[in-house]
Amino acid sequence: MHELAITESVIKVAVGAAAGRRIHAIHLAIGVLSSIVDDSVQFYFDILSRDSLAAGATLHFRRIPASAQCQTCGHQCSIEPPLPPACPACASVALRISGGMEFHVESIDVEDDVGS
């Protein structure tokens, strides 16, 4: 459900950055631990962007992994939710998860006129 509010924000941020130019693509960076459903965002986007400079633009989701580091044996691996119950190498529960919470618009592709 919150994908609706998120999509509205994506459009607002992108249109703001486009400074009047037509937007062809929006590149989003989304950490795997920040729960966003891509299809849902795309669905809302197609409706909400209709009358804006972002109409018809393609959304690209760059999924940023989270990484787990074991405090006991040093093992490091990238993870997706759900979190692993313990270190896959040594079964210690002393894992530290970092990253994966990213949540921003990285860049947009806009139309820029050159030549004649």
């Binding site: 941020v13 950055a17 062809h24 921003h104 592709d109 806009v110 006129d113 030549g115």
Partner: peptide
């Protein structure tokens, strides 16, 4: 006709919910 629209990548790096 030689009008060419090209795409330009604009870095944004802004939190999606920056308004909020």
């Amino acid at each position: 006709e030689r009008t060419v629209s090209i795409m330009k990548k604009v870095d944004v790096i802004q939190a999606i919910l920056s308004d909020n």
